[in-house]
Design a protein around this nucleic acid. Sequence first.
DNA 1: GGTGCTTCACATCTCCATCG
DNA 2: CGATGGAGATGTGAAGCACC
Length: 222
Amino acid sequence: MSLRQQKNGKQIPWTLAELKTGLEHFYEQQKRYPTATEVDAYAYLPSARSIERRFGGLVALRKQLGLGIEHDFRTGTHSTNRAHLINKRAHRVEQTVYERLVRRFGKEMVHREYFFTDDHRTRADFFVYDEQRGFCVDVFYPNSLRNLAGCLNIKIKKYIGTKSLLLYPVIFLQMNESIQQKEIDTLVSHKAKKLQTGQYVMEWGTFEVFCRGRDPLKVLRA
DNA sequence: GGTGCTTCACATCTCCATCG
DNA sequence: CGATGGAGATGTGAAGCACC
């Protein structure tokens, strides 16, 4: 994603000073230094992979430049803050989805922490009983499209070997409003790891349409 | 109260297909 | 044929749960 000029079709090697300038430029705008994913998306820096090859990685580069911050964002304070954010957000987002599902399908029909394997170890966020065969919902909130792919791989792995797939749809519901269904579909269609039959990745708008097509179960009361 | 196990999502490392 | 970047693999920390 680099805007850098090429000379005679050849890439001019980035210098340490240029990288420092690029990082500081990012810092001025964001008040923090970029992660690998953000470096990839940033026009004034080479890709994280290029930094890996030429400078031994982002961690090594930060160390070399002496930016006065923690060098490795995978551990330490940065990681702690990230974990806190993830946990809080996951709780909030799951609660939101729960309330919306209950509003449409009724409290008795929305089961939380649904076990879909016999060993009772693996579970999904929700199972909803409806007039059809019901459906399963796994909610998540990735901070980027790149991360969405990562999350998806984890989920695909988790659901491998579960026999439930053909019995009802399994929906991976991503709740980041800035990620559009179109981007998701493109990513999913290009993935090496394919979704299994009956698995879908949706953003909220698409999921709402899906829900409208599912009729709430009518319970006969004596 | 402690221990082990799981989930959440993220940052980085690594592989390798593609491109000029 | 070397350089590039897309994307899977790996490991991290907080928190919830079962179990003792």
